[in-house]
C-alpha cells in the first residue's frame, strides 16, 4: 500500500501524455543527431533575411559604422530563444571580427551580458583577431523595460549603427527600437518568439525571422551539423503533427456526421 502511494506521488499521471510525447521527441532528436550522421548531409531551404546577414555586416564595414545586436528585454538566459540568439551572435561576431567592424551589444540582463562576452570573445579568437574584441561594447544597460528601451534608443540615435539585429524575446520595446532604427536608415534584421511583437517587426524591419525560423537560422548560418540535425528533427515532428491533426479531424467529422458525441481522444 505504501509502495503504491509512493509510486503515485513519484509520477504525476496527469502528465503521462506529455512524458510520452517528450520521450518520442527526444528519440527523434537523438536519431537525427547521432544515427543519421553518416547519411547525406541535411540542407535547409532558403530563409528570407538570412542571406542579408552578411550584407548587413558588410554595409556596416563599408560605412565605418557599428553594428548593433540586442536580444530584447523579454528573455533570460534560461530561455531557448536566447540560446538560439547567442548562436547567431556567434556567427555575426566572427564576421565583424574578420571585417573589423564594431559590434555593440546592449542587454537588460547581466547574465546574458556575461554569456555574450564569452561568445563574442571566443568568436573573435576563432576569426583570428582576438585583439579586436572590446569587452565594453557588450554592456548591461538597465533591467527596467523602458530604461533598457531608452538606453538602446540612445545608442542607436547617437552611434547610428548601419545595421541592427533585433533577435531574441521582445516585448513592448520592440517597436520603439525598430522605429528608431528606421529613422537612422539602418538595415534591420529582426526575429522573435513573441507572437505579438512579430507584427511590429514585420511592418518596421527589413527582414523578420518568424518564431521557429530564429531557431533554424543559427543552423543555416553556421552550417553546424548538430543544429541542422535538430531542424530536421523539428520537420519530422511537424509531419507527425500534420498526420495527427488530419486523423483527428477525420475522426471528429465522422463522429459528428454519425450523431455520436465527440470522444475528444485527441485532447490530452
Amino acid at each position: 500500500m505504501d509502495l503504491i502511494i509512493l509510486t503515485q506521488s513519484l509520477f504525476n499521471t496527469d502528465r503521462m501524455a506529455t512524458f510520452l510525447i517528450s520521450l518520442i521527441a527526444i528519440a527523434i532528436v537523438l536519431y537525427t543527431t547521432y544515427f543519421r550522421k553518416n547519411k547525406k548531409p541535411f540542407t535547409i531551404r532558403k530563409i528570407n533575411g538570412l542571406q542579408a546577414v552578411e550584407d548587413a555586416i558588410g554595409r556596416a564595414t563599408e560605412m565605418a559604422r557599428p553594428l548593433l545586436y540586442t536580444p530584447g528585454w523579454g528573455g533570460d538566459i534560461q530561455r531557448p530563444t536566447t540560446i538560439a540568439s547567442m548562436n547567431i551572435l556567434s556567427f555575426v561576431a566572427e564576421k565583424t571580427a574578420q571585417y573589423d567592424c564594431d559590434l555593440v551589444f546592449p542587454t537588460h540582463d547581466p547574465i546574458i551580458m556575461s554569456v555574450a562576452q564569452e561568445v563574442v570573445k571566443e568568436s573573435y579568437s576563432r576569426a583570428g583577431y582576438p585583439d579586436r574584441y572590446k569587452e565594453d561594447n557588450i554592456s548591461y544597460v538597465s533591467s527596467s523595460q523602458f530604461g533598457y528601451a531608452a538606453a538602446v534608443d540612445g545608442i542607436i540615435s547617437r552611434t547610428k549603427p548601419a545595421s541592427i539585429f533585433l533577435l531574441g524575446t521582445f516585448e513592448a520595446e520592440s517597436l520603439i527600437l525598430a522605429e528608431t532604427g528606421t529613422s537612422i536608415n539602418a538595415i534591420q534584421i529582426a526575429g522573435t518568439d513573441s507572437t505579438i511583437q512579430l507584427s511590429f517587426f514585420i511592418v518596421a524591419c527589413d527582414y523578420t525571422l518568424i518564431g521557429e525560423e530564429l531557431f533554424a537560422a543559427s543552423g543555416y548560418l553556421s552550417g553546424n551539423k548538430s543544429i541542422l540535425a535538430s531542424v530536421q528533427a523539428q520537420d519530422i515532428m511537424k509531419i507527425m503533427i500534420a498526420v495527427f491533426i488530419v486523423t483527428a479531424v477525420i475522426w471528429a467529422t465522422v463522429e459528428s456526421l454519425s450523431g455520436t458525441p465527440l470522444s475528444y481522444w485527441w485532447k490530452f
Binding site: 501524455a17 506529455t18 503533427i241 483527428a248 479531424v249 471528429a252 463522429e255 459528428s256 456526421l257
Partner: peptide
Amino acid sequence: LYNRTIKQLTASVMPIFTE
C-alpha cells in the same frame, strides 16, 4: 512541448462537417 505544441495542436481539432 505542452504549452506551445500539444495544447495548440489539440485545440485545433474540430469536425469539418456539422451534424
